[in-house]
Amino acid sequence: MSGESMNWETLGFDYIKTDKRFLSTWRDGAWQPGELTEDNVLHISEGSTALHYGQQCFEGLKAYRCKDGSINLFRPDQNAARMQRSCSRLLMPHVPTEMFIEACKEVVRANERFIPPYGTGGALYLRPFVIGVGDNIGVRTAPEFIFSVFCLPVGAYFKGGLKPHNFKISSYDRAAPNGTGAAKVGGNYAASLMPGAEAKKQNFADAIYLDPQTHSKIEEVGSANFFAITANNEFITPQSPSVLPGITRLSLIELAGSRLGLKVIEGDVFVDRLGDFVEAGACGTAAVISPIGGIEYNDQLHVFHSLEDVGPVTVRLYNELTGIQTGDVEAPEGWIVKV
């Protein structure tokens, strides 16, 4: 499938093989010079720690086509920093920030024909990852590692505009109290597959996870961060050592305070006090913001702004952030890297 023959309007969030991906191997204490390759199949040892012990982490970020034809990467330095934190947690070597950003740029340039045009709502999604590989069987850090970045075009998350979705409080835990919740590692997502599937079977968009220690506070929405707006113009998002520090979350925190004049609070979001909030949403790279219409807890659906319409503050946050990403709104310093 070529970029020229794609129907940009029907793009979803599905794997599409693009032309090139970046690949580098860590051995003998250093990352080897990386290269672009057409091969989308990894050849790794059957004893790789990534396969047996979950020694791997990943990132997600997007490249956007601007009105003037240029290409924006949104805050790749933050993704690099988060991947370094994930690598530290799993005893893997850091990918230096400069190497990370340059690899992303190379992949975007090599697959430029797959970038959805400006105005379609689509973007080029980048998936950097680090995995432990090499001949091994003991529970220990791997002898070698692979760092790779591949990409695929993705469509507008909401066909026909922003729409509220309903979510269900899960009885499952996403991560342990002192576990790997703050690292972007596959094990957290494996743990979410069953509760997510159960929620979707009951016609909810996804599961919402409470804090693993007390099960009294909202932590995450599916694989996204939670935020809420109060009637007093406060922007509130959970603060917890087991919440993944999202780049979209970080950006909304900064924009809510500096551009919308909201009071920003990072703290506890008690599930029995949902009535304190007039709007709520989930934020992450894929959707930017998924407005939350209602949350089911103890068999009761708590409705926020509306089950049909998106709240005004959520709309303003969404427009501000997506405008920055596509170059239509002036970005805070350092947020945009031109490819």
Rank of each mutant, 00 (worst) to 15 (best):
V95C: 11
F13R: 09
C87H: 05
F22D: 07
D68N: 15
H94W: 13
A110C: 02
L23N: 10
W31N: 06
P117I: 09
M99I: 13
K105N: 01
L36T: 08
G60K: 03
P93K: 07
R85D: 13
R109E: 07
Q78W: 14
Q56E: 15
M92P: 06
V108S: 00
C104Y: 04
N72K: 04
K17Q: 15
N72E: 06
A110M: 02
D28N: 12
G121Q: 01
E112Y: 08
N40R: 12
C87S: 08
T49V: 05
G122P: 02
E102N: 15
I16L: 10
G12T: 13
V95S: 12
G69R: 11
E38P: 10
A80K: 10
N111C: 04
I16Q: 04
L124I: 04
Q56F: 03
E106A: 15
D77V: 09
Q55H: 09
L124C: 00
L36A: 04
D19K: 14
V107L: 01
C66T: 14
V95R: 12
D77A: 12
A110V: 04
G54T: 00
L23E: 14
D39G: 05
S24M: 11
S88H: 14
R27C: 09
R113N: 15
P116N: 01
K67C: 10
A63P: 05
E106I: 09
M83P: 05
F13D: 12
N79C: 03
R75L: 02
L51W: 03
D77Q: 13
Y64C: 05
A30Y: 04
R27S: 13
R21E: 06
L11Q: 05
H43F: 11
T49H: 14
R65I: 08
T25P: 09
G122I: 03
D19F: 08
I16K: 01
L91S: 14
T97K: 14
P33R: 06
L90A: 11
I71N: 07
L91A: 13
W26S: 08
G54D: 02
G29W: 00
K20R: 15
T49S: 15
A80C: 09
F114G: 00
G29T: 00
E35V: 15
K67Y: 11
D68W: 10
S86F: 04
I16P: 00
P93C: 08
W26K: 08
R85L: 15
Q56H: 11
H52N: 02
A81L: 13
P117Q: 08
F74G: 00
L90S: 10
F114L: 01
D14E: 15
D68E: 12
D14A: 14
Y53H: 06
E38H: 13
A30L: 02
R82D: 06
G60T: 02
D77L: 08
L90E: 11
P93F: 09
E106Y: 08
A63E: 04
L23H: 15
R27P: 06
S45M: 02
K62Q: 03
G54M: 01
T37P: 02
G122Q: 00
Y53C: 02
Y15I: 15
I44T: 01
